[in-house]
Design a protein around this nucleic acid. Structure first.
Length: 800
RNA sequence: GCAAGAGUGGCGGAAUGGUAGACGCGAUGGUCUCAAACACCAUUGGUAGCAAUACCAUGUGGGUUCAAGUCCCAUCUCUUGCACCA
């Protein structure tokens, strides 16, 4: 027997040379498409967390192939974007070079794990052959009016010197470096993602995502229904538009609040008497980080706008207008009607500024707190007497519409996608600005717009992309009129490349189209998509949005791209703390392979616990799996000729085939491994085992431990390589034991066990149970009320 | 605050309403060895008992049921999302 590392190399070479894992775009077999999110090839190398999800998908893919499917299981690299650029800046190498090196390391590591990846389909998002088509698809957005440039107050990370999407700046800190984000005004390319908000909610019904994933998406989209109402301003011929989900409380409005950035303030600054005070407040609010501003604080701040007064359209009452940073410019209309009696925030504000509080819904004590519950309407004109929110809202909306002062309105938290980055390491946005023609698309024949080869790739302080400095590259001619023009110097976010990569795997070398229609039709939807829970909201939304757009313009056959989406749990360090460089508890998969072998590592990561839950690493546990593998090897000493299952093992083998088959399909890898351990325990008790029996064990273990099982199959000359063999089938009739030990309960407590035969009738079982000494003891001098016999399971004697 | 998920031995974790703790780790004792490692055998939820066995035990309190870790109600704790979203 070869040493483990030799065995691993041998079979990895065999798999590669024989091309058994290459998927075919035309096949009579049924297709199945597995995908695990492609990694950022960071300098840190592969993490044991990668090993968990890769092994899981690999095991499923291997089994599916053995079951006769044409399986697509590709892998590639998501190498654009800030992480790669930061790494390059830090290590003073060109990102291209850094990416190449990192990919090499990653790929080697993945190969060492024995993944059944179809490497003929590998690509990186940074390959010009790939990003040509990313650019091409961006131009489709542009052509269809889905991309536009807008002055945007963007999240700006002063450390990374980069604009961030709301998603990248969640919580008010830069996702990459943790620096507090500032606000900066910048012209940015935007994609009209908010147009798709409703479709992105509806489309979830066509998916089999986990409930928690669907929920994350729905929350992120943040749909709410209510009304827009305009409030006239007394001093000028203008009105203030607000959004509310509670138009039923309109009679309870005692003031208005606008966001500090609200344009009304500048528009009427001449009429405002306390502009100094307001300006000071605005400055203070702007300095506050998003984090501070979005924190729920009881202590509200704000300034009354002196000189402007609003009029409540429902009762013509005059009410004051305030500015306060608890109202956000980027949601709704940036202005609200405040109903302190029935909204906590408005209540806090009113209390602090001594504003009237008018109750319009009965049920609470408004002298103590805002009442947000349901109840009878009071002080509410046309609504008086109504007793529930639903009716009140409906009636008020009808009323508003009739009088032309408001209408029903749905709002989404989901914003348009800020698609510009002032970075070097991204796909150049393929547009040219001409003084005469405006923004013009780069013609398809000129794609890709390649990144220039420069040495200066550090970001600039003024927030422009480093590309802006490269005049040779920037200066060009207008494709429309031929006059001198300038290239767009912004690049795409790294979410771009990952928003369609699963499509490219279907047809990765096509230089005529982003993917052929035949390939799209053949592979259809991605059947099983695995990725981190951290991507459940953003990546998944971007990807679905992108795909829905392609569908709407007729480029892909399915509106929803993914069938199943699953997320693996994180692997924590020993003791349950997060693995991190600073704690020094990061486990390198390479070291583990060296010490225990790739199969043991794979086996352990499958055995470690529930796949979807996070779990703590344990090297002793890994060693336990190595012992298991060693015992499987040693069992070979008992192998004798024979192509049948022996009587002793027939039952357990059939049961094991059934259990392992079902468990792998439902991602219960931990119990699949334990089933195999139990099977091994039984086999070890035998004096000899037949080749057929040993081969079945190897086949069942193969998806999880592919190298050693292939080797054992070869060493004991048990047949063709397992990866080219068919998955074992079980005989249902042989999974049932004829004799079984069942429990005998008296009043629900187990008092004895009896052996029963499958064919025993209830009367026989009952008699047998009643003869048990301990049972007799417990029913002595008591009356038997009834006897419950569940065949093959349990018998319960109820006594009084 | 809202939403989702989870609470089971020393640990990771098993249990279509039917013998709770499978399987593994660790631990204890033993075999092998000059010794150790490896391997193998045995024991291993708690309490009491020589034992048979009994009682207790799946966060807590109720309920449904012949039977509840599993179903229902309430409650506590933890984790993860989302969060001045009007």
């Amino acid at each position: 027997m070869l040493p483990i590392n030799e065995i691993e190399k041998k079979w990895q070479k065999y798999w590669e040379d024989s091309q058994v894992f290459v998927a075919h775009n035309n096949s009579d077999k049924p297709k199945y498409y597995y995908l695990v999110e492609f990694p950022y090839p960071s300098g840190a190398g592969l993490h044991v967390g990668h090993v968990r999800s890769y092994t899981a998908l690999d095991a499923m893919a291997r089994k599916k192939r053995m079951m006769g499917y044409n399986v697509l299981f590709p892998l590639g690299w998501d190498a654009f974007g800030a992480p790669a650029e930061q790494y390059a800046i830090k290590n003073h190498i060109h990102p291209k070079k850094a990416v190449e090196e990192n990919i090499k390391v990653f790929k080697e590591q993945v190969k060492k794990l024995g993944m059944s990846v179809d490497w003929t389909r590998e690509f990186s998002t940074t390959d010009p052959e790939y990003y040509k088509w990313t650019q091409w698809q961006f131009l489709k957005f542009f052509e269809h009016g889905m991309a536009y440039k807008a002055k945007k107050n963007i999240n700006w990370c002063p450390n990374c010197k980069m604009g961030l999407s709301n998603e990248d700046a969640s919580g008010g800190v830069c996702e990459r470096c943790g620096t507090q984000v500032e606000q900066r005004e910048k012209e940015q390319w935007m994609l009209r993602m908010s147009d798709y908000a409703q479709d992105l909610i509806d489309g979830l019904e066509d998916t089999d995502f986990q409930e928690r994933t669907k929920l994350a998406q729905i929350n992120w989209i943040g749909k709410s229904t209510g009304a827009e109402v305009s409030f006239k301003i007394k001093e000028v011929d203008d009105s203030l538009l607000i959004y509310t989900t509670r138009p039923d409380t309109l009679y309870g409005v005692t003031f208005m609040v606008v966001a500090p950035e609200h344009p009304m303030i500048d528009k009427y600054q001449d009429l405002i008497n306390n502009m100094d005070e307001i300006k000071a407040y605005r400055e203070m609010a702007n300095k506050k980080s998003e984090l501070e501003r979005t924190q729920l604080v009881k202590d509200k701040t704000g300034v009354k706008i002196s000189g402007l007064t609003a009029i409540n359209p429902i009762n013509d009452k005059e009410i004051p207008i305030y500015i306060s940073d608890y109202v956000m410019m980027n949601y709704g209309t940036g202005a609200i009607m405040a109903v302190p009696a029935h909204d906590e925030r408005d209540y806090d504000f009113a209390k602090k500024f001594g504003i009237d509080i008018i109750e319009v819904i009965k049920g609470g004590d408004i002298s103590k707190e805002a009442y947000t519950g349901d109840g009878e309407m009071v002080n509410s004109g046309v609504l008086n007497g109504l007793t529930n929110k639903k009716d009140s809202i409906a009636k008020m909306i009808a009323h508003l519409k009739e009088r032309g002062i408001g209408h029903e309105k749905t709002n989404f938290k989901l914003q348009d996608w800020i698609f510009s980055r002032q970075r070097f390491w991204g796909e150049p946005i393929p547009l040219i600005y001409c003084e005469d023609c405006g923004w013009v698309a780069v013609p398809e024949k000129d794609l890709p717009v390649l990144l220039p080869d420069v040495t200066e790739y550090e970001p600039t302080d003024d927030g422009e992309s480093p590309l802006a400095k490269i005049t040779d590259w920037v200066n060009t001619t207008c494709p429309k009129c031929g006059k001198p023009a300038r290239r767009e110097t912004d690049t795409m976010p790294n979410w771009a490349g990952s928003s369609w990569y699963w499509l490219r795997y279907m047809d990765p070398h096509n230089d005529k189209e982003f993917v052929s229609q035949e390939a799209l039709k053949y592979w259809g939807k991605l059947d099983w998509y695995n990725g981190g829970m951290e991507h459940a909201a953003r990546h998944l939304l971007y990807a679905r949005f992108w795909n829905q757009f392609l569908y709407n313009i007729g480029l892909v056959p399915n509106k929803e791209p993914f069938k199943v989406r699953v997320s693996h749990g994180m692997i924590l360090g020993e003791g349950g703390v997060k693995m991190s460089k600073s704690l020094g508890n990061v486990i390198n998969p390479d070291d583990m392979i060296k010490l225990y072998g790739a199969d043991a590592l794979r086996c352990y990561e499958m055995f470690i616990g529930d796949y979807e839950k996070e779990v703590a690493w344990s090297e002793q546990g890994l060693n336990g799996c190595k012992r298991f593998i060693d015992r499987v090897i040693r069992l070979g000493n008992k192998v004798v000729e024979g192509d049948e299952y022996s009587q002793n093992l027939e039952k357990i083998i059939n049961k094991s085939i059934k259990k392992v088959t079902e468990d792998i399909d439902s991602m219960k890898f931990n119990t699949a491994v334990s089933t195999l351990m139990i099977l091994l325990n039984e086999m070890e008790k035998q004096d000899t085992i037949t080749k057929k029996e040993y081969r079945t064990l190897c086949l069942l273990l193969n998806p999880i431990a592919p190298h050693i099982t292939e080797e054992l199959n070869a060493v004991y000359e048990m047949g063709k390589p397992l990866c080219e063999s068919t998955w074992p089938v079980w005989d249902e009739a042989k999974t049932v034991e004829e004799e079984k030990e069942i429990a005998v309960q008296v009043n629900g407590k187990v008092r004895s066990t009896i052996r029963v035969n499958l064919n025993d009738d209830e009367e026989t079982i009952k008699e047998k149970a009643l003869q048990e000494e301990n049972v007799i003891h417990h029913i002595a001098d008591k009356e038997i009320v009834k006897v419950i016999v569940i065949k093959g399971k349990i018998i319960n004697i109820v006594v009084k």
